[in-house]
């Protein structure tokens, strides 16, 4: 038993353990997603996050220790975001052809996300810093955190709301859009990218390459639009 404790003490301090755990948890999530025949409720990110949260809780591991290993996965988000230029380039003629529909859909979708979120929370009694933190939740995390700080919200709370929004978008998008009988992958992808940033985009790539490319565009332009519009939107509520 003490030998196990020694090994555990060693491993718990090494990035190897939590990097591996992250990949194993995601592989389990991905396997369950496939076993559920692509049911969006079996979202691999959601499954992996829940599994890892349980393991961290049971082993009493603090998040910084976990992140020391998981940061290698987290880091790849940067170059992967840059790589979104590739499907965008491949689909550029198709993207250009719908520049105007995308611009109007961006304004409509992004304003709907901000106004309805703040409006509903306000109606349910949420006020102050918490309400402000909600405004940029559909934008990609780095932008949302910056906006939150600038308008007087709490960046930590915004980070939580951003991730919850992304997972919500990834889970509801497919059943919702199928129910609406929308077959245009460009419109589907773009709307999901605007509403649910990178996690929605990741989900779009799982479903359809075209949807993924357009979701990447939606995420990028909504980052810009949220940064510009959020400070004006919140004035309606404070």
């Amino acid at each position: 038993m003490s030998e196990f404790a020694d090994i555990w003490t060693y491993l718990a301090q090494e990035p190897l353990l939590w990097l591996t755990a992250t990949l194993v948890a995601y592989s389990i999530g991905d396997a369950l997603y496939r076993a559920a025949r692509g049911n969006p409720l079996a979202n691999p990110v959601l499954i992996a996050v829940v599994l890892l949260a349980i393991v961290l809780g049971v082993t009493d591991t603090p998040y910084p220790t976990y992140f020391a290993g998981a940061q290698f996965v987290h880091f790849i988000l940067g170059p992967a975001t840059v790589a979104l230029a590739i499907p965008l380039y491949v689909n550029l003629a198709r993207v250009r052809a719908v520049a105007l529909p995308m611009m109007v859909a961006l304004v409509a979708g992004s304003l709907t996300a901000m106004l309805s979120a703040i409006g509903i929370a306000w109606a349910l009694g949420v006020r102050g810093e918490v309400l402000l933190s909600l405004a940029p939740k559909s934008a990609t995390a780095p932008v949302a955190l910056g906006v939150s700080e600038a308008i007087g919200g709490s960046p930590t709370l915004t980070a939580v709301l951003v991730i919850l929004t992304g997972i919500t978008g990834a889970v509801v998008a497919t059943p919702l859009l199928n129910m609406m009988k929308i077959r245009d992958w460009r419109a589907r992808g773009f709307a999901v990218g605007v509403a649910a940033h990178g996690i929605g985009t990741a989900r779009a790539f799982q479903v359809n390459e075209t949807a993924g490319a357009f979701a990447g565009v939606g995420m990028g332009v909504n980052a810009l639009f949220t940064a510009i519009a959020a400070p004006y939107i919140i004035r309606l509520f404070i």
Binding site: T22, L23, A25, Y26, N43, P44, V45, L46, A48, V49, L52, A53, L56, Y63, Y66, F67, A70, Q71, V73, H74, I76, L77, A80, A141, T156, L157, A159, V160, I163, L164, G166, I167, A170, G198, I199, T201, A202, R203, F205, Q206
Partner: peptide, 15 residues
């Protein structure tokens, strides 16, 4: 791409 959001997602649980 989904995998890359897992570390941030785990961070959310604690908050």
């Amino acid at each position: 791409l989904s995998l890359l959001f897992v570390p941030a997602g785990v961070g959310v649980v604690g908050h």
